[in-house]
Nucleic acid binder design. Structure first.
Lengths: 145, 145
DNA sequence: TATAACGTTTACGTAAACGTTAATCTTATA
DNA sequence: TATAAGATTAACGTTTACGTAAACGTTATA
């Protein structure tokens, strides 16, 4: 269990940001101390890093991320219940959630692949540009004599 | 030469956004009609698409992008002048700008590569996750009997 | 030449994502 | 046990990146 400063260091977020994310219901630390200090588990940190990826790599808004995390949470909750309450309603619901989950994962994966494609193209362009610059520099150096 | 609506369609930005980008000195259309209608060249559109990449793929702020575009513009200006005014001051300045340019390109390229790496990892993770979901779905379907 | 469809500037509004400050409480340590 | 270091909530402030509306000019077309 880690306190907020540690988590801030490990995730690269500010303490304010962590509190803000809790405020909007994005990520809630699993526990609190007697004196109401926030306590984050390793799993909490994992989730924070995951959502940082969604933010920084996919460029999703905090609201979009919230929905994604909510869906995942829902599924896990149902899975817990499923073991206790093994009825067909829960089963059908679980199948539905799994399909939803797969769908969003698929969507995100496609977005990632699209982006990677574009970024690879961009890297290629930069290679060309840089080559031209190097050539130009060489040319200028030669003309110095 | 294209009017603003065309450019909006071709770039996927709104007209308001195009005007805003001009307002903050990010991208200025090369010309205007008699009646002060904005006129964008094909090159302007290229630049807009380039900066969209910087925004959407690298996640840079408009201010950071502005500096990058400014540097590129500076270099091109000096290159123009260089042909007319071939003195050693311009030459040294041009070498300096070229080095700066290469440096920012290199930085951006590295950022891109970092991101691609992380995204590839993320895609891999998603593959694993989706496989588990598929297995789970199969399992649930089987248990239906 | 009227009018619809496009453009212009100006200016106020807004949502998202935090920063900052103040007042107060907890907790480890000397 | 005093005190410094770090935590808490509450509330207001700020920046970025546009949206929206008003009032008005331009241009193609019937």
């Amino acid at each position: 269990m880690h306190q907020i400063e540690m988590v801030a260091k490990k995730t690269g977020l500010t303490k304010r940001t962590l509190r803000y994310y809790e405020e909007i219901g994005l990520i809630t630390p699993s526990g609190r101390t007697e004196g109401r200090y926030r306590l984050y588990t390793d799993q909490d940190i994992e989730q924070i890093l995951h959502m940082k990826n969604l933010r920084d790599l996919l460029g999703l808004s905090l609201n979009e991320i919230k929905n994604i995390l909510l869906l995942e949470k829902k599924y896990h909750e149902l899975r817990e219940n499923y073991f206790q309450d093994k009825n067909s309603v829960a089963l059908e619901r679980q199948i539905e959630l799994l399909n939803q989950l797969d769908h969003t994962l698929c969507t995100q994966q496609m977005m990632l692949q699209e982006k990677v494609k574009k970024m690879d193209k961009m890297i290629e362009e930069y290679d060309q540009k840089r080559k031209r610059i190097q050539a130009k520099l060489q040319e200028l150096h030669d003309s110095k004599d």
